[in-house]
């Protein structure tokens, strides 16, 4: 994929250029609003059930896991806030990004890649239609907008899962669960997760579109670039997550 540090930096540069060129097309007529709506439908709407399902179980296991730890020191009243903090700041954005990569991102690469190897992208160009404007930009923008919404839903449903397990399985007092959650979860924890999600969505879509756009060598090449885009998408998500977690302000929290 890339060799050494210089190759890595160059790759980042190429991706940045690709994203910038595509985004620049947003400001050129005709505006691709119908394509954008289609992508929102595909990336956002069609991901709702899988996001809810994975969110529910992630919240449930988080609550259970933190209850095991808190119960040792007798502070199981903190199960709720611990669960929702982890969901809002880390697991919501990260898990959502991974689901979006695997579901929507892989499909983007495969579709664009197939269009590339079957000359459909050339056909667009010959028809004086910019593939970056028609195909790429709507996907990148839709992903950057849909991913935070999905992460929000993931976090919300995750909290429901956490509550169910915490209260009904582990026996945490429901009033205490909610009270602690309310008093310790700060708005910035939510913003933190949402900002990360916007960036994840943007970067994942850029990677997946780029991989599709530069596909070579027929059906085999489509398989290869789809595979690479999923791997890269997940790796980028996890690495970026660390840096973003450190950079984005935590906000004031009453200790």
């Amino acid at each position: 994929m890339f060799t050494g540090f210089v190759g890595y930096i160059r790759y980042l540069g190429t991706l940045t250029l690709f994203a910038t060129q595509s985004i620049a097309w947003l400001f050129v007529r005709p505006y691709r609003f119908p394509q954008f709506i289609d992508e929102m439908e595909f990336i956002g709407n069609q991901s709702l059930s899988i996001i809810s399902l994975t969110g529910l179980f992630t919240g449930a296991v988080l609550a259970y896991q933190s209850w095991i730890a808190f119960d040792i020191v007798g502070t199981d009243s903190l199960v709720g806030v611990s669960t929702s903090l982890a969901l809002a700041r880390e697991l919501g954005p990260v898990m959502t990004a991974i689901v979006v990569t695997g579901r929507a991102g892989a499909a983007m690469t495969a579709k664009i890649g197939l269009m590339r190897v079957s000359e459909q992208i050339d056909a667009l160009e010959v028809m004086a239609i910019s593939p970056k404007q028609y195909l790429i930009a709507p996907k990148i923008v839709a992903a950057a907008i849909a991913t935070p919404f999905l992460a929000g839903i993931f976090t919300l449903v995750g909290n429901v899962g956490g509550y169910l397990v915490g209260v009904f399985l582990c026996g945490v007092d429901p009033g205490v669960y909610i009270h602690n959650l309310k008093s310790f979860l700060a708005p910035w924890d939510i913003y933190h997760g949402l900002i990360k999600s916007i960036i994840f969505g943007f970067v994942i879509a850029t990677i997946c579109c780029y991989k599709g756009y530069t596909t070579k060598n027929g059906a085999e090449g489509v398989g290869k670039s789809t595979n690479e885009s999923v791997v890269l998408g997940i790796v980028f998500t996890l690495v970026m997550d660390y840096f973003l977690s450190v950079i984005i302000p935590t906000g004031m929290r009453s200790q």
Binding site: L114, S118, E119, Q120, A123, E125, V126, A128
Partner: peptide
Amino acid sequence: LREMRMNFGMLFQGVALFD
């Protein structure tokens, strides 16, 4: 380049219909 391409109608060897 886009203006120039407006002059062309192209049938590709592999046709390249939008599938």
